[in-house]
Structure formats: structure tokens, C-alpha cells
Nucleic acid binder design. Structure first.
Lengths: 133, 133
DNA sequence: TAAATCAGGACCGCTATAGTACTAATTATA
DNA sequence: TATAATTAGTACTATAGCGGTCCTGATTTA
């Protein structure tokens, strides 16, 4: 259905919550209470986002996560890329393509450019935009 | 990864092939020889597309499928919709949403409009466009 | 030193998807 | 009218991906 994964979906919810107080540190439990996403799921998302560089983590008592970049400079495309790689609507638009009909496929380049168009529109939407409903 | 399904992907390949000779009838075997997609898969795709009204079928000897609408009036969005329903990037953007955090989710309307943007750009691309590489 | 918190995996069960197969219905043609 | 070609419809299976959980170890603060 041209869906993003649930984990990626939740990650935008988490990032939006963090973006409301960009400088404050939030731990997983705090995020759970405000988003109602299950704790292990949140924890998993936070780790991925931290690893990709969108969040900075702090261990220990009073630890948690903060945004590394201001909300108006983080795009939805960046968040999706962190969670599930670059936008590629078809197999052949991605990095390591293994489509068997690729050698004789006439519309491959078209799908590449369609993916590009979609990606560009997702780049234009920032976390700051997501705060405005 | 924001992927369309393989079946949907293949369906655009099949439709593109048919669009090259919009008035001619093609059977499944013929399409297989020109696209190298497995025959049962092609057959499955053709049935779905016919049921959705994009193709007209003809049984019996010399039977096959033809396009119902001229290629410049069929959009990629239409083909995707036929194969897997309307574009809805998130659960909550679709028809029958069951997301548990929906009641308190602050970014739902944003995702709806993002889905809308993507859908609009897919509507603008026609089968005729896909023939031009 | 103890408690809180993140890091990094391993793991499981469900669901969706891709792909296959079989039988019935329909049609053209010899 | 018989036969062969073709689609219609449905059922089935196997696989992979995904969501979600849990455990152990490392780090930090009080």
C-alpha cells in the first residue's frame, strides 16, 4: 500500500515529541507516558535514531535523549532514512537491486525519477512543520 | 523502505508493455515473453487489473487483454490503487485505521497531508510518460 | 556502591506477500 | 459440433519481514 513501517511511523511521533522541547533531555519512560507507545518499542526506536546521529544519548541516572539538530532543520525524509534507508519505491530504485527482469525492463529509469520526486517532497517537510497541526 | 509491492511493481511493467500497442490484444504468454515475468504471476496481475476496470479481457482462442483507457489518461496512481488500494503512508492515513495511539497523536493530520502530496504527484505521471525513458 | 538508564543483541510469533496450482467457464475455429 | 486455447476464480504454501519483547552488559550520577 505504499506504507512506511510502523516503527518509522512511531519514530516521527517520538521525534515530534522531542521537538516540542528541543533542548530538554527525555528518557524512554517519559516518552512512553506522553505518546502511549510501548516502552520496548520506544527504546528500540531511540537506539536506532541515536545510532544514525539524529539523537544524542546520555546514560546513567537522569540520562535520556536530546535532538542533535534544531527541528526546523530535520526533515521527515531524514527520519525515514534513519529508520529504513533511502526512499526507493521499487526494488530497482534502491541500492542493491536484485530484480530478475532488470536487464530488459524499460521503465526502470522512470521509477528512479518517481522515487526521487517523492523523496524531494519528503525532504521539504521538517519536524517544525509537524508541530503545527 | 516506502516500497510498493513487487506485484504492483510488475503491474506497471505489464501495463507499460500493453501501452506500447494500446489497441492490440495480448495474452499472458505473449506478455511473459516480452517482460520475463513468471507466467502465473502475470496471470494474477492481469486478473486484478481486469477486475478493477483498467483492462478488458477476452476469453477463448485469440483471447487476451487490452487497455480500456488510452495510456495518456492512466496514471501510475491508478495502477497502484488497483493493485493495493489508495496511497496511505501511515496506518492512520488509510481507510480503516486501527492505530492504538491515534487518540492522542498530534501529527496525524500532517501524515494525511503528506500522503496526499505523494498521491498527487503519482497522479500526474501517466502510462504515456512511462513509455518515454 | 547502588540505582537508573542506555547499548547491543537475540529471539519469537504473526502477518502479508509472492508465487503456484487446479478446476471451471468461455470462445474461436476447423 | 468438437477441440484447443484462453481467462476466471479460488485455494494453497512457503518465505520473509516486521513488530514487539527480553536479557545482559556498559555507563553515569548521586
Amino acid at each position: 500500500m505504499l506504507r512506511i513501517s510502523k516503527l518509522a511511523d512511531y519514530s516521527t511521533v517520538v521525534m515530534s515529541y522531542l521537538a516540542r522541547e528541543p533542548d530538554k533531555m527525555h528518557n524512554a519512560r517519559d516518552i512512553m507516558e506522553h505518546t502511549h507507545i510501548a516502552l520496548p518499542t520506544i527504546s528500540k526506536i531511540l537506539k536506532i535514531l541515536a545510532k544514525s546521529g539524529l539523537l544524542r544519548s546520555h546514560r546513567g541516572i537522569n540520562g535520556g535523549y536530546t535532538l542533535v539538530i534544531p527541528p526546523d532543520q530535520i526533515s521527515v525524509a531524514q527520519i525515514l532514512a534513519a529508520m529504513e534507508g533511502n526512499v526507493a519505491l521499487t526494488e530497482c530504485s534502491g541500492q542493491h537491486s536484485h530484480c530478475s527482469i532488470e536487464p530488459i525492463c524499460h521503465i526502470r529509469s522512470n521509477w528512479r525519477s518517481i522515487s526521487h520526486v517523492v523523496q524531494e517532497s519528503l525532504k521539504k517537510i521538517t519536524l517544525a512543520d509537524m508541530l503545527r497541526s
